[in-house]
């Protein structure tokens, strides 16, 4: 019962929260760059405008793929907030991105194709670390169920500092921020224009944006899991994490895809696996 309520709240509130986060992000980014920045509600205005645009589509298949992308992002987020199985959530989340990639492949544009290839590389780069994070949380709380992890009173972060740092690294990839905004970035100033989303426009692009809001809320929820033993600390940690990501975004150049892959797997192997090994063999579980 509680689960369904959580899922419903997520489906209804997440876009608002996600949009507000995006708006705050833009203001903070602007301030870090010495600019004023747009109003807080600008992301909503943007998406609203996108939905007003004429629907210009070369390949109608892309509409289906993007809708599927949005649907599966919502499903994975809803499962998460319903307290579902973390592994299932991660696979639904990955499936969503596979649809996004398929959507980009459905159009005939070299920019979009290269963006799609890079997105695949990014998925490969962050997937191991996300799974290790789930495994780490399992080791600490004894369950893959989000509901149980939240209910657990064990301070996960103390046992999993390496896993958490690794998760932060791949969070940069997921939030599409420098240095890892290689498949698409929040503006079209890169060699592949806007990468994977180059060929989406109007309502389709609006859906991608909304999916991104859902995704951000879900990912920040994931961050919260590491601090679930203390809700206040958890919320503070989520905010600090996000501000840190913006800070990193503003102090680094974009790297190449090779570096994204190396970093993703590097943190998984070094921070993630080492941390897990310590938890399993030295501390001997919780």
């Amino acid at each position: 019962m509680n689960g369904i309520l959580g899922a419903l709240l997520f489906i209804i509130l997440a876009p608002f929260l996600g949009g507000l986060i995006a708006g705050a992000d833009r203001i903070l980014t602007a301030r870090m760059q010495g600019r004023v920045g747009p109003p807080l509600l600008q992301p909503f205005y943007d998406v609203g405008k996108l939905f007003e645009k004429e629907n210009v589509v070369v390949t109608t298949a892309q509409n289906f793929y993007i809708l599927a992308y949005l649907a599966f992002i919502i499903v994975s987020g809803a499962l998460f907030f319903a307290g579902g199985d973390l592994l299932l959530i991660i696979f639904a989340f990955t499936l969503a991105h596979v649809f996004l990639v398929l959507g980009a492949y459905a159009v005939h544009s070299p920019y979009s194709h290269i963006g799609a290839e890079r997105e695949l590389i990014q998925i490969m780069a962050y997937e191991p670390m996300i799974i290790l994070s789930a495994v780490g949380l399992y080791l600490v709380s004894g369950s893959f169920y989000v509901g149980d992890i939240i209910a657990s009173t064990v301070p996960a972060i103390l046992y999993l500092p390496g896993v958490f740092l690794g998760f932060l690294t791949i969070l940069t990839i997921k939030l599409r921020k420098s240095p890892f905004d290689i498949s698409t970035s929040h503006h079209a100033h890169q060699e592949i224009v806007k990468g994977i989303t180059t060929e989406f426009s109007g309502a389709t692009l609006g859906q991608v944006e909304i999916a991104h809001w859902y995704e951000n809320v879900f990912l920040l929820g994931f961050v919260y899991l590491f601090f679930a033993f203390n809700p206040i600390l958890g919320v503070v940690a989520v905010i600090v994490t996000y501000v840190a990501e913006i800070f990193i975004d503003n102090t680094t150049a974009r790297l190449r895809w090779q570096a994204a892959l190396q970093s993703g797997w590097g943190v998984a192997a070094i921070l993630g696996l080492f941390n897990l090994a310590v938890v399993v063999y030295i501390i001997g579980g919780v």
Partner: peptide, 14 residues
Amino acid sequence: MAKIVIRNLVHGPA
């Protein structure tokens, strides 16, 4: 870049 970022945050928009 941190030095410049912090300066920008403190001094406000240019």
